[in-house]
Computed example of a mutant assay.
Amino acid sequence: MPTTERLEAFIVAVESGAHAKAIENFYTEDATMRENQAEPRRGRSTLVAREQATLDRTASVVSTCVRPVFVNGDHVVIRWVFDFRFKDGKAMRMEELAWQRWEGDRIAQEEFFYDPSQARPA
């Protein structure tokens, strides 16, 4: 179960734009991540590489945690809003719920739920 301080540190890391670094610092080595019930991606190094590839296509990302954050033991739900500006000039706003299962002070499993129509840059 994450402490309040550890969970807040994770949120601050994401809101500061350190997305790939947050995965390195807050996820277990064998963590899984999946979107809208698709096949999960496995392993922290895979998760970091995919996040970095996404970030490499962006000029900027503004990440906002919409509170409250829901915590029940090892399970956490965070509502995120991401405003992307891509290097090609396109923009995208993504709102999602992230369901997490923590093992101690690290995220072992994360699932994102969002409307896929948001994933098309304008």
Rank of each mutant, 00 (worst) to 15 (best):
P121I: 03
P121C: 07
F112R: 03
R57Q: 08
F10V: 08
E35T: 09
R41L: 01
K87Q: 08
T28A: 09
G89Y: 02
M33S: 12
Y27P: 02
A49C: 11
W80D: 04
A38W: 07
E8S: 15
A20W: 05
Y114V: 12
R6M: 05
Q37F: 00
A98W: 05
Y114R: 09
E15G: 00
Q37E: 05
K21S: 14
T64Y: 05
R34G: 06
G73R: 08
M33W: 08
I78P: 02
P68A: 10
E110T: 01
V14Q: 09
F82V: 02
T28R: 02
F112V: 11
I11T: 04
D88M: 05
A53L: 03
Q52L: 12
F84H: 09
S60W: 00
F70M: 14
L7D: 07
T54M: 07
R67K: 10
L7S: 03
I107M: 07
Y27Q: 00
D105A: 08
T54Y: 00
G89T: 04
D83L: 00
L7I: 08
E24M: 11
R6Q: 06
Q109W: 14
Y27C: 00
W102P: 06
F112L: 06
D115G: 07
A20L: 08
R44G: 12
T64N: 01
T64D: 04
F112S: 08
G17Y: 07
S16T: 15
A31H: 02
E110H: 12
E5I: 10
A18M: 13
R79D: 11
N36G: 01
F26I: 05
E96K: 07
I78M: 05
M33T: 14
G43M: 02
S16G: 15
